[in-house]
Design a protein around this nucleic acid. Sequence first.
DNA 1: CTCCTGACGTCCC
DNA 2: CGGGACGCCAGGA
Length: 103
Amino acid sequence: MTKEGIYSEIYSIIRNIPAGKVASYGMIASIHGGCTARMVGYALSKSSSDMKLPWHRVINSQGKISLGDEESKILQRNMLEAEGVVFHNDKIDLKIFGWKILA
DNA sequence: CTCCTGACGTCCC
DNA sequence: CGGGACGCCAGGA
C-alpha cells in the first residue's frame, strides 16, 4: 500500500469496529502497524460523513473522547450509549468495551 | 525545500 | 492524580 493507502487502511479498520465497542487511536495505529495515533486522528479529521465511518467508536487510550467540541463529545457519547456502551463519569471501560481483534 | 499544525501517546515533574 | 513537554508522520502554505 502506498502512503495514500494509509488513510484507506485506517478507514477500513474503523469500519471493522463492531457496534457496542470502542477502539483507541493508538490501537488502530497499532493494528495498521505502520502509522501513529496522530495519523488516525488526522485521517478522521479529513474524512467526510459520506464515508459513514463510526468515528464515535474511536477514542483515546484514556477511554475518553478527544474532540475539542463539547457538542461533538456529547453526540459521540450519545451514539455510543445507543449502541450499548456504558459511560463511567464520561469515561469508557476499555476492559469491557475495548475492541478486541478477532483476526 | 522548510516551517507549522494536528480527533494522540508516553514520559517527567 | 494533574499538567507540561517531546515524539510520531503526513499534509498544507
